[in-house]
Design a protein around this nucleic acid. Sequence first.
DNA 1: CATATGCATTTTATAGATAATAAACTAAAC
DNA 2: GTTTAGTTTATTATCTATAAAATGCATATG
Lengths: 303, 303
Amino acid sequence: MKTDTVFKRAYNDALDLLSKLSRGEPVPPEGELSHQLGVSRTTVRKVLIELDQRGVVQGDGRKRTVRKSKGALQRFPKIETVAMADEVERRFMEWMLRGNVRPGTVINELELARLFKVATTGIREFLNRFQRFGLIEKRPNAGWMFKGFTNEFALELFEIREMFEFRSARVFVALPNRSPLWSQLDLIRIEHVQLLKDIGTRYHDFSDLDRRFHLLINSASTNRFITDFYDIISMVFHYHYQWNKQDERQRNEAAIREHMSYIDALKSRNWARTESTCAAHLASAKATLLRSTMQWDSFPSKA
Amino acid sequence: MKTDTVFKRAYNDALDLLSKLSRGEPVPPEGELSHQLGVSRTTVRKVLIELDQRGVVQGDGRKRTVRKSKGALQRFPKIETVAMADEVERRFMEWMLRGNVRPGTVINELELARLFKVATTGIREFLNRFQRFGLIEKRPNAGWMFKGFTNEFALELFEIREMFEFRSARVFVALPNRSPLWSQLDLIRIEHVQLLKDIGTRYHDFSDLDRRFHLLINSASTNRFITDFYDIISMVFHYHYQWNKQDERQRNEAAIREHMSYIDALKSRNWARTESTCAAHLASAKATLLRSTMQWDSFPSKA
DNA sequence: CATATGCATTTTATAGATAATAAACTAAAC
DNA sequence: GTTTAGTTTATTATCTATAAAATGCATATG
């Protein structure tokens, strides 16, 4: 059976939206809410019924108004707002990256299903999607094999990453001045400046900024395979940043500075300068990742 | 319920194996058969029971012997030996490449499931795997969108292909003489010579040879992402060759000659020469594919 | 005692079912 | 007559169930 995580997330979001309105104000039309919450009108209506029952809004049809929008309004717990598939992804990554799973381990669909408390189909679906990350391999009728989050993996990943990023950066510097990417680059530069200022408290925000920055560079290539490949890097770094907190603040601060040189080099339209700043940044990202794969490789076996 | 395609294929293969033995000879042990047929002993035993019932072998345990191995032995029809998942792949590719599906078409899981006569889970599984080919895109809770087998797709595909193949070829020429890849290259060269001789009758065998040749070149990179990417190219060309018979003989003959120059250039260890023969071959492969995407783009809409 | 077979157990591949959600259609209200 | 709400229909996400196939263990045989 489908879970109602979409509804619950929409409900929570609706609470946030309504909190901007005061008592007695009319509730925005369903179509408007549907657009703002990013769900179908069907779900909006379900949310409105719930809001009504919980006394947040009153009336129906076009004369629905806000009853109480402030105060301690009960929200659905976050865990109930994430789709099974996303939860499986998170749990699998945790299992794989933190669980010290040895290269060569056979992945058992049933076992994971029981461990994650989902049906086997959910695990299968995830593994099929995850296959393209190059970390698992299917053996027909006999499960999957985990190839290991190894040194080799990181090196192969970066070989491609470098190839793609250099190509994209080269296209980027040659972009005409009227390209919208230049203004996007300016905006993202400002974000870097701000984050650097607040680095003491907000250093964990770097992960997302990093992702958006490189995606912007790579979008210059307008090649779906390059953009899609960045998904792999994003995911690896996303979970890596989330769990490897060692020196996080320092690493991120250094990376921001590298990004800034890289951005300024791009803005100078000078390829030689861009190439060297890009190379420097990728080299330090690679070193960070390699440190963590080596770490895993040297752990003692769980079994 | 799982289908018994593995059993049926193994049964057919066992018939071929036994046909090499004469009446009265002992049947090879189960473990041996399991290895030769590439299935578990469980399946081998099921096959042996069936062979017994059909009078092909007799006796049991260690004293099983061949009863009749020649003559018109009944085999399972080929269609019953392919797993549902593979059949879905074939049917989907046909639907997509030959069905004149317009870019932007929304893919309906239920509709495909009915069309292909499988459960929706089978379609979902396929689409999840197929996503990495860059031809479809998922819109959560609202199906998949077909992006179109367009000109753009072919250009993006070849941009990456060229990048990877050049890199691999460069590594290949620099391979030490003792690398086993050199002898594999020699073997594949012989296959080219032979195919060229029989081109009149065997020209459709080129598709597979082409795949193996490029896979060999790319294996020099020892990068899983490069090897995996070749899956995409293989699949596209596999189905493309299968359905686009126009000028097939001529195209393949020309391609074989291109391969031969490319192989000889590699063998000469001369990078400049390799680069130009590789470029020439990729350019003509690209032109072939572009011809067929353009064709699709200009077809009238089905709806 | 090393192999081979026989048997029990576990796991995968696939179908089928259903609540949640989206999409499409219809009717009301301003 | 355009926007909005109400209702019906179609589709997706997810679970459960089960035959086929693989794996593991015990027993027999040369």
